[in-house]
Write a protein that binds this DNA or RNA. Sequence first.
DNA 1: TTGTAAGCGTTATCAG
DNA 2: CTGATAACGCTTACAA
Lengths: 368, 368
Amino acid sequence: MVTIRDVARSAGVSIATVSRVINSSPRVSDDARRRVHRAASKLDYWPNGTARSLTTSRTHVLGVLLPDLFGEFFSEVIRGLDHTARDSKFQILVSSSHADTRDLIAAAQSMRGRIDGLIAMVPERGSAAAVRSLVRRFPTVVVNPPAAIDSCRAVSIGNYEGAHAMVQHLLGLGHTRIAMVKGPPGNVDAEERLRGYRAALKAAQIEPDPGLERPGDFTESSGYQATEALLRLDPRPTAIFAANDYTAVGVLGRLRDAALEVPRDMAVAGFDDIAISQYLTPALTTVQVDAYQLGVAAFRAFIAQLRSPAKRGARHEVLPTTLVVRQSCGSLRPSAPITRYRRQAPAEWSTAAAAPKRRPAARKGSGA
Amino acid sequence: MVTIRDVARSAGVSIATVSRVINSSPRVSDDARRRVHRAASKLDYWPNGTARSLTTSRTHVLGVLLPDLFGEFFSEVIRGLDHTARDSKFQILVSSSHADTRDLIAAAQSMRGRIDGLIAMVPERGSAAAVRSLVRRFPTVVVNPPAAIDSCRAVSIGNYEGAHAMVQHLLGLGHTRIAMVKGPPGNVDAEERLRGYRAALKAAQIEPDPGLERPGDFTESSGYQATEALLRLDPRPTAIFAANDYTAVGVLGRLRDAALEVPRDMAVAGFDDIAISQYLTPALTTVQVDAYQLGVAAFRAFIAQLRSPAKRGARHEVLPTTLVVRQSCGSLRPSAPITRYRRQAPAEWSTAAAAPKRRPAARKGSGA
DNA sequence: TTGTAAGCGTTATCAG
DNA sequence: CTGATAACGCTTACAA
């Protein structure tokens, strides 16, 4: 392993000079600089980041703590983080899939000294205390904080606003008995979406009916089961708002098995706008969440905090969501045939057309 | 920042003793151990990983270099890596989205000293030299190596075998004029899939027809365009094998716009088995690639190499793929109606039923 | 069983 | 402009 000493010896200078050249300090003679560069490239010298960090106490690494997400959401957040981090020469130390709070803290603990800050996404309402202990140690940005956390920045998905907008949309289509299949209890996203649902109903003078709120856990099968229960109600709801798109897939499945036609017999709405939503039959009306932007915003908040630690006051950015109107709720506009493959999307698709932005044209590697 | 010194002072012992306790060395008296533990937890001491690494030259971090993948593939590979790494107490330093070889090397360079090894996924045929320079520096596992690389392990997707199996399947259904929409030139996955396609044809005494091999780049629009060209041929192909599922989506789109019915008028096959494939109309027959297992295998190969650096001989593991027969090519069996939502998949779905394994039931966070 | 002290590979502070 | 040398926080011989 070639060190700074080897380069110094080979260039006939001291290690201090090599260090200066490497860090492009101006106080070096052209001659010395040249010799050092030559020696470094001859020996193929790569500075040791760990040693560097030890003296400078900067790592240029951002820690990322994520729950056991999977699929697009996870990867898009990471992509947003990584892309933005790259511009600031940061790399990302990821630790995901934490079973519990102890796990989470253990992961953070082993990051001590290796990172300049932390992005933590902890969707469980119960783990606010754990998050606080992280915030004490690292400059932290919390994504979807489980509770108000002092002296740390936060970035959230507009769950409340998105759900509110969706229910308003359904109300606008004439629905009044709107059911909701909820997400897992204790999950922050789920709770916020529920809150938005209820608020929108109340704003329309409709008292939320507990019988129309069915338990669910963000899975397809929970949507299937909840729908089964909803179909037994009399009178039935005329619309089902699922807490996320996977749940909506289950809802659609149960309706199909019941030979009900969507949206004629029942309107169905989801949340997230995952990739499959536009390919469902009928295509799913949903609330688009931009996971990539979530990553971008989180990194920006981190950098801002790093640059001005003085104002570590809690700032909370809520990312806007977009209502994507497709076929599953019917539409105010005449429903166009599904012809996704035109070169240019027709103007009336403004909402749906937003999706491709997240999917770059040139894909390398396995296309999946 | 509380260091080992603070703990030593507070416990009334030397830093060596603290270190021994932290690393649970047996050569410490119970009394000292107790006092150190007490002091450590009182001061809330977390050891500095960087300092630790500097002396031990072990980091317990695995570097991961990825191209600009997106979507499930990316996240599933990372999940597989991360899950497996967790068992060995490893964390993952990710750097993805490299524009070019220089970018890649720069990222690796800044990992020097921070990682114990490297997983590199470099799908461009042209970057074999860059990969070799990585292999010299780190214990490296190459995913889908662009060329034979000495003294490093490799894990590959069974691109060749998968494509071969798919073409055999099409041949078995009676097709003889089978077109292929290729992937990006220079991309290893794409080239291997093409090779498998040609080999299967030759094995059936059919000379591959260059006119039936259309350029593509793993994108939906390239599938659309390639199909346009294929439809002008006379005689037309009776089946189109797309280099990946995204491309197949474009193929299906163009066929729909041409009012052709799939699979009656044209069989369509894809590669990857992305999430949307089973929701397309008709559901896509494709080759399933298990990205999660790719991550698992890559980490295992890394650990094996770390444990016995003696046998650094190049071992190349090729992950099996699975043929997933759905509706888009027709089927040897009577085509069942699409009823995905039964609690239990009917037996005849053995292949398609494999997919859900990759999608765990309990999803936390935003469901996307 | 414990403590002292020599590294690990850098950067940074001094003198020169 | 350059070179010694003291950190950085920890592990690990080596001594006691």
